[in-house]
Design a protein around this nucleic acid. Structure first.
Length: 486
RNA sequence: GGCGUCAUGGCCGAGUGGCUAGGCAGUGGUCUGCAACACCAUCUACAGCGGUUCGAAUCCGCUUGACGCCUCCA
């Protein structure tokens, strides 16, 4: 098995990956809060971990990949603004109807982007009992207290023996000085304390019975409970967006320590933000693009529509830990590059092997793995893949040669990385009537070729130009005329 | 205000103490009836100022700028 190196946010350095159990990987990724449509920024994080999941599978690991759906806790704001319940009441919907609506949307979008489904996709509302139990444990361990029907985690007390701030590199003393005074938090001993259980006000729709009265679970608890339940008290990888590092992931560590007396995660991984116009995409600010808008091109930032694979390729061209800025120019360039890659892959099946190779496929393959083994460096991998593209083209035009064995290796390697690991998809040229369309275009091509033989340039150009106007581009080559639909 | 990350050629975006990232665009060529497409080749770099070093875009310091977190956020 390959030796992987992973950047661990907890230690802030790259470390050799050693799973708790040889050959097995336990991975937890914080999923979406399903109160509105996923935007492209959300998709990037999940896509990074989809790629990571795919690479582990490719390497032969057995992976249990848990990605939750947050359908409680986050939905409700403890201040006066409660979007979900307001919305639910306005539209006379149950909260779970909203949850269902956006969960379905989430799944549909991910499917379009060719995501592999996780092994388990648990929900917060499905684990209320476990969360209550965890709170009881934390109280019993003296690290939480009940006030007025709510339960809070005692951060200062926890910090006496543990380090609240290990992950986010925050100093709690500084935090105390700098915390703003917020209304409605008077129940807390300290502003740093966070809610494990919140008392439900009468108008609050999502509510469950608990030893502390009717209420709902706090923001951070679900991930601790569900990761522990499905992956154990200690597991290999925990992922999520950079913006979840604090407080969310910091709180998860504290909760897990308070429950199980062990640091839960071996490797913390954080994906970086996707920006739009240089600013973070966020639902709250309106600075975002919805995936659906990309597919239709219906967004003021876009000059045309783009396919899911192009978007995926665009994102894979950047490292998951780097900020990536989305723009029309950038996605346009990615589309061309993606097309070049796909065109070369189409040529692969037509290549004829020679007795020997003038290209070093085996070494090239090793470099591809090296790139991925170095903290999932997909941009480098893609650079290597383009070296493969160049070779394919040169072999095709008989300027280089390749042996039968090397050709098989080239094919299997390209296919593995492009389709299995990066998760890209070949694009279907046309819709349902592709057979008929194909026949029509072929007919026009043969008519045009007749005209060309007769040197009737007026007619041949008319056919070519008018097809182009319809988005059908004819491509004259040595082996005749082909076409593509844009 | 506190903590942190980053500044790479026209654009996007990797990486590294000395040796070509890659893609897009541009330029030159091949192909073509002319084109387009495609293919081949190729030019533009490492924010600024100091320092360490035989050598730094890469390490250190400062300056400037951008972004992220500190409040729900992938």
């Amino acid at each position: 098995m390959q030796t992987l190196t992973i950047y661990n946010s907890l230690t802030t350095q790259k470390e050799k990956f050693k799973p708790l159990k040889d050959g097995y990987v336990g991975m937890y990724v914080c999923g979406p809060t399903v109160y509105s449509n996923v935007h492209l920024g959300n998709v990037r994080t999940f896509m990074s971990f989809d790629m990571i999941y795919r690479y582990f599978l490719h390497l032969g690991y057995k992976v249990r990949y848990v990605r939750n759906i947050t359908d409680a806790g986050h939905l409700t704001d403890d201040a006066s603004e409660d979007k979900i319940s307001t919305k639910a009441r306005l539209e006379q919907l149950e909260p779970m109807e909203i949850v269902q609506k956006y969960t379905v949307d989430f799944h549909q979008i991910l499917e379009k982007f060719n995501f592999l489904p996780p092994s388990i996709e648990p929900t917060a509302t499905g684990h209320i009992l476990e969360q209550i139990k965890a709170i009881q444990t934390i109280i019993a361990n003296g690290l939480a207290y009940e006030v007025n029907g709510s339960v809070y985690f005692d951060v200062l007390k926890y910090n006496e023996t543990e380090n609240y701030g290990v992950l986010s590199k925050r100093n709690i003393e500084d935090a105390i000085e700098n915390t703003r005074v917020l209304d409605g938090q008077s129940d807390k001993k300290n502003p740093q304390d966070f809610a494990l259980w919140k008392k439900a006000e009468p108008e609050h729709i999502q509510r469950w019975e608990s030893p502390w009265g009717v209420g709902f679970p706090g923001w951070h608890l679900e991930c601790t409970v569900m990761s522990t339940k499905y992956l154990g008290e200690e597991f290999d990888i925990h992922g999520g967006g950079m913006d979840l590092k604090f407080p969310h992931h910091e709180c998860e560590i504290a909760q897990a320590q308070a429950c199980n007396h062990v640091s839960p995660v071996r490797y913390w991984m954080h994906g970086n933000m996707l920006t739009l116009n240089g600013k973070k995409m966020a639902k709250s600010t309106g600075n975002n693009i919805l995936p659906g808008e990309i597919f239709t091109g219906n967004n003021k930032n876009l000059s045309k529509s783009f396919s899911a694979s192009v978007v995926r390729f665009f994102m894979m061209q950047a490292h998951y830990r780097s900020v990536l800025d989305f723009s029309n120019d950038a996605i346009l360039a990615a589309e061309k590059g993606f097309q070049r890659l796909m065109d070369a892959i189409k040529l692969l099946d037509n290549l004829s092997p020679s007795n020997n190779s003038t290209v070093a496929i085996e070494k090239w393959k090793d470099r591809c793995y090296e790139a991925m083994n170095d903290d999932f460096n997909t941009p480098i991998l893609i650079a290597h893949l383009f070296e493969g593209v160049k070779w394919i083209n040169l072999i095709h035009s008989q300027k280089e040669t390749i042996s039968k064995e090397d050709l098989e290796l080239l094919k299997s390697t390209i296919n593995a990385f492009v389709f299995d690991v990066l998760g890209l998809e070949k694009e279907s040229a046309a819709g349902n009537n592709s057979d008929k369309l194909d026949g029509v275009v072929e007919l026009l091509i043969s008519l045009r070729n007749q005209a060309r033989e007769n040197k009737d340039w007026a007619l041949s150009d008319k056919i070519r130009d008018e097809l182009l106007a319809l988005g059908i581009q004819l491509k004259d080559g040595k082996e005749g005329t082909k076409y593509s639909i844009n």
